[in-house]
Design a protein around this nucleic acid. Structure first.
Length: 881
RNA sequence: GCGAAAGUGGCGGAACUGGUAGACGCGCUAGACUUAGGAUCUAGUGCCGUAAGGCGUGGGGGUUCGAGUCCCCCCUUUCGCACCA
């Protein structure tokens, strides 16, 4: 063992040792308990960033811990390798996206290996390889056979920056998920869809089973995104048109007697018909035309240097003032025969429910606002109970019933019924009389997965004039991407590649065309964790028997940004895979950890814009000595010039230090601010561990006997050792609080130094034993966090095997127990003294010891004890007057 | 606007079931060893105060023998959702 800790020399050597011994390569083994630890796979952008390092340091610590506890641990890594940046690079640098991507993967793999993560690299997968994406195609065809994918002409979200359509999840809030400054616009396109709505109920209901294992935040976001609402559809007659009805959707059929108008979406087919009927001069017609114009105006961004930008006067759709116009027609309320004006208004969405609503201004804020603006009939209260105003007087605001205990009034034969009962009875009434039906609606839509891009999985279908849409026969999979696509072309490169497009129909043999869309890249990440369990299978995406052993994932770790995107798709894909008969469970992930961001303080100089924290000296810019704006904490990003390169940190401090700091500086789910001084602290700790082991190494080498006669200090050290094992075990295993686990190991190290200072050169055999026990435990406890130094120290302690495969230390509860306790004494809840007593003291003896204490006696001088509260072994509180 | 989470030293953060607030680390102060040290070791470090003592977990109230922790009101920050009938 050398005197100085030199991570740059140790780390590559230990990494080579693990690789040679295939320490982290695993096989399914039903005789052993398994643990599947999964971290979100990276997009191969070219460089690992600190966010990755944090994500993978957490997963790696947990994997090591479980492995040392005896689990058969599957810990894989791969590459989410299809997507836009590769195509952009291809266009810009005239490169090939496959070469660009593979080169990036190769350099990022080197970076991950330098960090020493315990991946089973034999299972490395990249989604852009035909060996992987052929199974996307296979799944797609199976799903088509089950009726789970279909084609339709639909209004889809379109991003002008990506030049492709997007799924609803990728266009949340009206902006592209990749370009938060690019509003999506709507286009009509023929597209492939996955029938998510078939699974909407399951996706929602199964969230209950995830509670406890998944963060509440994620569960809530998914619930809101799926957005189930139960209600009824009701047909309103149209005056003078006996053959037509208007179907509305409502969740509050109990308020139907309060309806004062019917409002249709401007996109509703009736509105279009009536607008045409009425002719160009009518108010309705011009409203509809204006509505279309307005929509086009708001949603088509300007372009600057070919990049779309938001116009300064852009108004998000949700903030447009409510506007409407009377259509000149009247509807008939089927419950009471009442005549209601039919309006059309910009706030009614054609895409949700039936595109038509009944307006109940008395009980709906939005309806109230709209009715008030246009002087529609005076609202009437029809749900009451906790309503305190006069039910006959005009309302000044909508009254939203607080709970289901309210009663319906002013509603004919239904009056007097509690709301839930009224809803059931009135829905049934509508059903029996043929003018309505119970209906559940969801916000979640079918997943549009066609992309008009070339760097993705080709959709394995052929369009034949005679046979229609024909799947590519499975023995001809994969449908491979051509290598010679022209990415510089303005259109879709796949559609322009004659060799790819022109094909004989598999059914009739006539000339036909391949589908030229590719799949959304979220398909790749929807099932990659299944592929890891059997990464080289060329008969199926995976062997069901092997998946039955490894799956589901025990712990998944990744960023919160995937709460409704990736994490809904994986749940959906698992349910589909189950229904295809490959597996028997419906949820892929038992426990989910959403780790916080890595942030860094940003500084801004008036002349030099964003500057790195290291370029700030005493609050002034290094280049011009002007004072900088106070640092804000922001997510690391290149544009803010506040990134930290992991490679550089590894070069300076070593991988172990970087990993340790990532785990020590904050609990995993919170944001973590990178700090160079903090990293130095972690480095200092590892140096301290190294030095104390070095100092005792020779002395404890030949110490094998357990000695009975321990000094007070040696007993204290042993106690600390066993307490630390206990704490680290629960901190990792039960709480996933790596930061406090590290703190505990630091305390043990401090205790070793204190012991060393007392014993100096005069160590007895029992002292050596206590130190050996402490050092061996410390090295093992360190292994999940800083495996390289742990290995090196383990070897120096005379061990041949790798420490990362050694058994996790056990603690002795007896030895961990304190033999003396310091008990705080309170008088009326205020701390006045501390007494030191034997650990096994009885409550009565403790009380006596407290009363005998001089300080306590002084405080009690002229007071009377009214009550004594003894919390066994923790505290005594005397209530006096 | 609606919903959720969080506010603890100069800083990152501990305090797990209502029971010694500030573990551990950074920073800072003093000392030791050193030719020197941005190395290392030792001691100190919530605030006010020479001290005794007092005050302290965003602010205000409450429950309790006892509140960072539970309840109510307010403030601030962050994050989701924002016409879903």
């Amino acid at each position: 063992m050398q005197e100085k800790y030199f991570p740059q020399e140790i780390e590559p050597r230990q990494q080579a040792r693990w690789a040679e011994a295939k320490t982290f390569e695993v096989e399914a083994d039903t005789s052993r308990p398994k643990f599947y630890c999964l971290e979100m796979l990276p997009y191969p952008s070219g460089r690992i960033h600190m966010g990755h390092v944090r994500n993978y340091s957490i997963g790696d610590a947990l994997s090591h811990f479980k492995r040392m506890q005896g689990f058969n641990v599957l810990h894989p890594m791969g590459w989410d390798a299809f997507g836009m940046p590769a195509e952009n690079a291809a266009i810009k640098n005239n490169a090939r996206p496959d070469e660009w991507t593979i080169a990036n993967i190769d350099s990022m793999r080197v970076q991950l290996k330098q960090l020493g993560f315990s991946y089973d690299w034999s299972r490395d997968i990249a989604s852009c390889t035909p060996e992987y994406y052929r199974w996307n195609q296979w799944f797609f065809i199976q799903m088509w056979r089950q009726g789970l994918v279909y084609r339709k002409n639909a209004t889809v979200n379109w991003c002008d920056a990506c030049n492709t359509s997007l799924a609803n999840e990728q266009a949340e809030g009206g902006f592209c998920w990749r370009h938060d400054d690019v509003p999506v616009r709507q286009r009509q396109l023929e597209q492939w869809f996955v029938r998510v709505t078939n699974y909407a109920n399951q996706l929602l209901d199964d969230l209950d089973t995830l509670e406890g294992g998944w963060p509440d935040r994620v569960i809530t976001m998914q619930r809101n995104w799926i957005g189930r609402s139960k209600g009824a559809e009701v047909d309103f007659g149209i005056e003078g048109q006996a053959d037509k009805t208007i179907r509305i959707f409502t969740t509050r059929i109990d308020t139907i007697y309060g309806a004062t108008s019917i409002v249709l979406s401007p996109d509703h087919p009736y509105v279009e018909d009536w607008a045409t009927e009425d002719g160009v001069t009518s108010a309705l017609t011009s409203f509809v035309i204006d509505f279309d114009l307005q929509r086009k105006y708001i949603q088509v961004p300007d372009k600057v240097e070919n990049r779309p930008v938001v116009p300064a006067n852009y108004v998000p759709e949700t903030q447009i003032p409510k506007e409407g116009v009377f259509t000149g027609r009247y509807a008939i309320n089927p419950f009471n025969g009442e005549k209601l004006p039919i309006w059309t208004a910009n706030f009614v969405l054609m895409g949700y429910g039936t595109g038509a609503i009944m307006a109940v201004p008395a009980h709906d804020e939005r309806d109230f606002e709209f009715s008030n603006k246009y002087g529609l009939p005076i609202p009437r209260v029809i749900v009451a109970n906790d309503f305190t105003g006069d039910v006959n007087a005009p309302l000044t605001e909508a009254f939203t019933p607080k709970d289901d205990k309210c009663t319906v009034i002013n509603s004919g034969e239904w009056s007097g019924k509690p709301v839930p009962e009224a809803i059931a009875a009135m829905t049934a009434h509508a059903e029996t009389n043929g003018f309505g039906t119970a209906q559940t609606n969801f916000k979640i839509r079918d997943w549009g997965i066609s992309r008009q891009r070339a760097w993705g999985t080709p959709i394995p279908f052929i369009h034949c004039a005679t046979c229609g849409i024909v799947p590519v026969p499975e023995d001809q999979l994969p449908v491979a991407l051509p290598k010679d696509l022209d990415f510089a072309s303005k259109g879709a490169p796949l559609a322009e590649h004659a060799g790819f497009v022109n094909v004989a129909c598999p059914t009739c043999g006539q000339a036909a065309r391949r589908d030229t869309d590719t799949m959304d890249t979220f398909v790749d990440s929807s099932w990659y964790y299944f592929r890891y369990v059997d990464a080289h299978n060329d008969k199926l995406p995976f062997d069901p028997a092997i998946a039955a052993y490894w799956m589901p994932v025990d712990q998944y770790i990744g960023g919160i940004e995937h709460a409704v995107l990736h994490l809904i798709y994986t749940r959906l894909w698992t349910k589909i895979t189950r229904d295809l008969g490959l597996i028997t469970f419906g949820e892929p992930v038992k426990k989910l950890l959403t780790q916080g961001m890595v942030t860094l303080a940003s500084y801004r100089c008036a002349t030099h814009d964003w500057i790195y924290p290291t370029e700030v000296i005493d609050g002034k810019c290094k280049f011009c000595s002007q004072p900088v704006t106070t640092g804000r904490i922001e997510k690391m990003s290149k544009s803010k010039k506040n990134t930290v390169d992991p490679d550089e940190m590894i070069r300076i401090y070593g991988a172990d230090t970087v990993r340790l700091f990532m785990l020590f500086a904050a609990p995993p789910e919170k944001d973590l601010e990178w700090s160079e001084a903090g990293a130095e602290g972690s480095s200092r700790f590892l140096n301290r561990v190294w030095r104390i082991v070095y100092k005792w190494n020779d002395r404890i080498a030949d110490c094998g006997l357990q000695i009975a006669d321990f000094s007070t200090e040696a007993r204290a050290l042993r106690r600390k050792t066993h307490q630390t094992i206990k704490r680290v075990t629960t901190d990792i295993g039960e709480r996933m609080n790596f930061n406090t686990a590290v703190a505990a190991m630091m305390e043990l190290t401090n205790e070793l130094y204190a012991f060393d200072a007392v014993v100096k050169d005069a160590a007895t055999d029992s002292d050596k034993f206590a130190v050996k026990e402490a050092v061996e435990a410390l090295v093992k406890l360190l292994a999940p966090f800083t495996p390289h130094i742990a290995e090196e120290l383990w070897t120096s302690l005379g061990r041949d095997e790798v420490v990362v495969a050694a058994a996790w230390p056990a603690y002795d509860a007896e030895l961990a127990k304190a033999d003396e306790l310091e008990i705080p004494v309170q008088i009326n809840g205020k701390m006045v003294a501390k007494v030191i007593v034997a650990a096994e003291i009885s409550d009565d003896d403790l009380k006596a010891a407290v009363l005998a204490d001089a300080k306590v006696q002084a405080k009690l001088a002229d007071k009377q004890i009214v009550k004594t509260i003894v919390v066994p072994k923790r505290l005594v509180n005397l209530v006096v007057k």
